[in-house]
Design a protein around this nucleic acid. Structure first.
Lengths: 218, 218
DNA sequence: ACGTGCTTGTTACCTGCGGTAACAGCAGTC
DNA sequence: GACTGCTGTTACCGCAGGTAACAAGCACGT
């Protein structure tokens, strides 16, 4: 015999557990087959059939969003740690954060690919039926907003600083992302080199360099 | 009656023309319905049926790549023009280029969305079946490479400058893209403001700002 | 003991997509 | 007139996402 609500609690608990198991199975499949993995394949990996997946996650977008959230949270946590770690100066802090991101995508490129691939994942809000934008991976937006608040909190930017911080947050994240994506594919140099060059860019080295002789001005 | 090769020439000409018409129809549909437009819908818009599309473009990826190429070329040309326009100094040149890009995505957000949406478009090379990366829109890579060569050609970066230029090219393009994407959606400020803030970032203002009082260091 | 309610699981189906035969008509060429 | 090469069609395949409709197990109230 059991106390009043214990059955529902138990059910809810096992439901949560089931959900976790399903997510892990989905994870395995997605990491093996890429983001185009079919619901059938995922269900088979979990040892069940499609409708159960749909009962738990609504639709494919729901599943993928749940999946993405876990990885996003993990990545975000490690980035925050890098951002909060003791550092001698700002440049060192920025380098550490960039390096943490790049190390993460280097270590688990398939996770990275899944997170960045905006292919559907559903998630469109019903507002403005045709929309615009909606392209950027949710991860990128989240990272941008996150960095924006950190900058706004910690850096003195004068009046209108919040707006500047938001622009910079999204801009820096985009820089990191695009450079990382390109680097991951072409591997033109060591990670440390990439970090160094990017930080140089943020530190204004472009504005300090001379024009090349014989070239049209830049 | 016609001269020797005139028939083939004629056919080729009308085929090219047909292709152009089909592309224009596809353009209309994609801009109306978004990148998920079905081949049936496109065929219907063109007043024909599916197999003809497939004869002309092979598969959906082929059609989309042909479509993307036109818009990409156009955007690239206008960016090159901005980059080559007379300017007083480097900062002005960078601002003009950023502004040109942002004006373009502001003016035709649906085109922009289509170009950036990496959702398939086919185009995967047969190499490395599961790959990695492959996410970034072709447009972004192309812009990054393009900017890289311009920087390498025109800016004196010392030994290893080519590597630096490539990193910067992709980094700057990524910054522009992410900030533009966010701005296009949220419209937090005027275009000129965004350009100004981004250029400040590239000019190293982040490295010059003070820590905020009472905040952990940054 | 018996039905009730809830969850888990199934099979079997619908719709719509990308993609592909297979065939019909209609130039111009030999 | 037969042949070729194009444009166009209808009708289909396979597979994806998604959804009934129904069966079984388990804890409850009576």
């Amino acid at each position: 015999m059991r106390t009043g609500t214990s059955q529902r609690d138990d059910q809810r608990q096992t439901a949560q557990q089931r959900r976790k198991e399903l997510l892990e199975a989905a994870d395995r499949v997605v990491l093996r087959d890429g983001p185009e993995a079919s619901m059938n394949a995922i269900a088979a990996e979990a040892g069940i059939t499609k409708p159960i997946l749909y009962r738990h996650f609504g639709d494919k977008g729901g599943l993928y969003r749940a999946l993405a959230k876990r990885h996003t949270d993990a990545l975000l946590a490690s980035l925050r740690a890098a951002l909060d770690a003791p550092a001698d100066d700002r440049r060192q802090r920025v380098e550490a954060t960039l390096d943490t991101y790049l190390a993460a995508i280097e270590a688990r490129p398939q996770v990275y690919r899944f997170l960045m691939h905006p292919a559907d994942h559903g998630q469109q809000e019903p507002e403005q039926s045709f929309d615009v934008g909606h392209h950027s991976a949710p991860l990128l937006r989240r990272l941008g907003e996150e960095l924006a608040t950190v900058i706004a909190e910690r850096v003195e930017l004068g009046p209108g600083g919040d707006e500047v911080a938001r622009v910079w947050g999204h801009g820096i994240v985009g820089m990191m992302h695009a450079a990382g994506d390109w680097w991951l594919r072409d591997r033109p140099c060591a990670r440390g080199q990439l970090v160094h060059h990017l930080t140089d860019l943020l530190w204004g080295r472009l504005s300090l360099a001379d024009d090349r002789v014989g070239a049209p001005g830049f």
